[in-house]
Simulated scan of single mutants.
Amino acid sequence: MIYLKNWRRDMVNIQAIKSYRIGEYPPCRCSVPFGNCTHGDSEKEPFIAAHNMILAHATAVDIYRSKYQKEQGGNIGIVLDCIWFEQISNSTADMLAADRAEDFFQNWFLDPIIFGNYPEEMSKILGSNLPRFSRNDKEKLKNGLDFIGINHYTSEYVQDCIFSVCEPGTGASWTEGLARRSQEKDGVPIGKPTDVDWLHIYPQGMEKMVTYIKKRFNNTPMIITENGGQLNNPNLTIVCHDTERVEYISAYWDFLLLAME
C-alpha cells in the first residue's frame, strides 16, 4: 500500500473547468466574468484543454491495450464528476436545458471517448470554439474504455437560458450551454445542506444519474469511485457516532440499489 500525504486528484471535467475557466486550479487561467486571472480565455481554453485530455486518454488506452492489458488482465477507464441536473420546471425548454447541462458537463468527455464525437448540442452552440478530432484521433478513440468511474455527490436544478431571461450564474453563458444551474428552487434547497457549500443531500440523484449513464452509453460498466458528504453538525466531536453521515451513505446506496434492481 502506498500512502500519499496531502495529494489531490480531480476528475478530468472538473480539472478543465477549474483550471481553465474559473482559474482556481493551476495553471490558473481564466478571463472575466468567470474569474480574475492574469492570463487566459475562459471561452476557448477549457475546450482546448479538455480536447487534449481526451486525446491523452485515447493514447494511454491505446498503449495499455496493445502492450499490457493481455498480460495483466486489467481494466482501464476514466473518472468524471457526475452531477444529476434536475429541470427546474416541467417546461420543454427546461427539460432540454437539463439535457444540455449534462452535455456540457460529463458528456463533454464521455461522448468522444465512447462515440467518437462531441455531443451534438455542444457542436451547435460552440461552433469553431470546439476543436475537431482528426481521422487518426477517431481511430484511437475507438479503443474507448472498459468502465466509467462516477464521482457523484449532489444534484442541481437547471433553468433554460435560450428562451428565458436568466440571471448571471453557473451554466448561464453560451460556452456553458445556456443552462443556468442552481441549488435552490423558489428559495428552497434541492436537498438538506451540508458543511460543503456545493453539496446538498439528494439521494434520488444517484439512481437518476447511473440510469442516465447506463442508457446513454450502452450499458458500459460503471464504478462508483466517490460519494460522501460532511453534514452540518457543529456539535459533532466523536466520529464513531457520526449517524448523519451514515444516513447519507445509506440513502445514496439505497437509491443505487434501486437503480441496479
Rank of each mutant, 00 (worst) to 15 (best):
42 S>C: 06
144 G>P: 00
144 G>D: 04
213 I>E: 06
134 S>F: 05
218 N>R: 14
70 K>F: 11
175 T>A: 04
125 I>C: 07
129 N>C: 11
102 E>R: 15
154 T>W: 04
222 M>Y: 04
73 G>E: 05
74 G>V: 05
81 D>C: 07
7 W>Y: 14
260 M>E: 10
80 L>I: 04
30 C>W: 05
134 S>G: 12
150 I>N: 06
230 Q>T: 14
8 R>M: 12
74 G>L: 10
219 N>H: 15
80 L>P: 03
67 K>P: 02
208 K>S: 14
252 Y>K: 03
4 L>Q: 11
194 T>P: 01
79 V>R: 05
6 N>C: 08
207 E>W: 01
154 T>D: 10
146 D>Q: 11
45 E>H: 04
138 K>I: 05
195 D>I: 06
132 R>W: 02
132 R>K: 15
179 A>K: 12
55 L>F: 04
158 V>P: 09
241 H>P: 00
245 R>I: 13
144 G>E: 04
10 D>S: 15
72 Q>H: 13
7 W>G: 14
79 V>G: 02
179 A>H: 05
172 A>C: 11
133 F>S: 08
22 I>R: 09
171 G>D: 10
27 P>Y: 05
71 E>P: 00
250 S>Q: 13
106 Q>A: 10
17 I>A: 15
246 V>L: 09
37 C>M: 07
21 R>F: 01
69 Q>F: 08
19 S>Q: 07
218 N>F: 12
194 T>G: 06
148 I>F: 10
192 K>C: 15
6 N>F: 03
187 G>K: 00
33 P>I: 02
85 F>V: 01
27 P>Q: 08
119 P>I: 06
132 R>M: 12
207 E>T: 08
185 K>G: 09
24 E>S: 12
103 D>R: 00
132 R>H: 13
155 S>I: 06
81 D>R: 00
239 V>P: 10
216 R>Q: 12
96 L>T: 02
62 D>A: 11
183 Q>G: 15
62 D>E: 12
212 Y>R: 14
3 Y>A: 14
230 Q>E: 01
241 H>R: 10
82 C>L: 08
153 Y>C: 10
223 I>T: 15
136 N>L: 14
15 Q>G: 07
232 N>H: 10
